[in-house]
Design a protein around this nucleic acid. Structure first.
Lengths: 224, 224
DNA sequence: GAATGTGAAGGTTTTCACAGCA
DNA sequence: TGCTGTGAAAACCTTCACATTC
């Protein structure tokens, strides 16, 4: 699991009801995806039990998660698939498109550019950056590679919302600082280090080596 | 964060002390990485406070995490960097090499093949598979692409320990079933679906769209 | 009858705070 | 004095169970 690096510093307002947990948000996203499939299958109504069974959760969990955001179901019946899907889309913010920039056109960066899933979920990669003169100016999977030295001007011009860091550890923090200075508030990082950002910036880290190490640990420890 | 799909079904043995939490394992991995850096910097001793500050954790958390595995520090002083690093390596299972196969040589699969980080952490990608006749038999970043139809024979011959799924949703479960039938107990998946596996198989899912949606949610909801 | 929505119970994880040791 | 190791407390998350509604 990738980790949340910034626990939302929401302690301030005591009236505001308790922050909704990361796990709930994750699952809400999953429900959304599942509802999309059900919708395509022509299913009109779904119960918390059905929703739960498809992902090894409990029905109570599903109901509780949804209840944080409202009451979307009908007692005795279940939830209306399409309606719930679009309600969730509204909650997550998938009822709009997000403009994304990718920093670094190495292995990972270039995989992301070709990753169709993103576009289907509302994330449009608008810019890709590198610092390698051989790449800058060339086309990469149909996209022009920009010079990372100009990131400030380009992020502003393209009104970028979210940035993906696919850079080596050595420069990741440096670029993150510049990105943050541009007012970007959401960052997904593939660099295997802890990134320092101000409290109002959200960083999520995907760390594949750590995932592999989790597997290694599990097999080492839990078997025999 | 990627999610753990298989909550270890460890309820059986009541004598066995409580299973250590996923979050602890994650952090232990991170400590290992950090200790590696400190070791290279020539630091000999480190306190829980220093370890914590580098990743926005609390010193108590660090000490508690480590305490699940033993007492590695010296009161009044801290932890010996190199020694703790190798102790942790032993715990995670990084004191050996792991043989890995990648299923699918698309965007993500091919990025993984070039991902040096893996090798540095003890994970050797030994096989890569695809079902596309144009790819099979050709070299991809120096590795021969195998026919996924022969996965059973090849996984056995190469004594593969861990498998990475970088396949489209439509075939992921199918291949997972075959991989599991080969006796593989650890799977890292990039396919955005819930994979069904027996209780003794560990699956971790990296789901980049869900991470992006988390960011979208955070920016939508927590600002203004 | 069927399935939601939700307080309360139960379980797990994190933080606190301090005894204990170098 | 400084910092670990750890029970106990607090915070948090999940599951239970049932009143409620269709």
């Amino acid at each position: 699991m990738a980790e949340l690096e910034n626990p939302q510093s929401e302690k301030s307002d005591p009236k505001r009801k308790r922050r909704i947990s990361d796990s709930t948000i994750y699952r809400i996203s999953q429900y959304h995806r599942l509802l999309h499939v059900l919708e395509e299958e022509g299913v009109k109504t779904v119960s918390s039990k059905q929703l739960a069974n498809r992902q090894r959760l409990t029905p109570a969990q599903v109901r509780k998660d949804l209840s944080f955001f409202g009451a979307f179901g009908t007692r005795g019946l279940g939830y209306p698939v399409s309606e719930l899907k679009s309600k969730i889309a509204g909650i997550i913010g998938l009822d709009r498109r997000w403009r994304v920039a990718v920093m670094g056109v190495g292995n990972i960066g270039s995989a992301l550019v070709g990753f169709k899933e993103f576009r289907n979920h509302g994330f449009d990669i608008r810019l890709i950056f590198d610092n390698d003169q051989r790449k800058i100016g060339s086309k990469h999977k149909g996209m022009l590679v920009s010079d990372i030295q100009n990131l400030e001007a380009e992020l502003a011009a393209e009104k970028i919302d979210l940035v993906i860091i696919a850079l080596p550890v050595s420069v990741a923090q440096l670029i993150v600082d510049r990105v943050v200075a541009c007012g970007i508030k959401g960052i997904l990082s593939f660099a295997p280090i802890h990134l320092e950002v101000p409290a109002d910036v959200i960083v999520r880290s995907e760390d594949m080596s750590i995932e592999m190490e989790y597997l290694a640990y599990s097999l080492t420890r839990l078997r025999n």
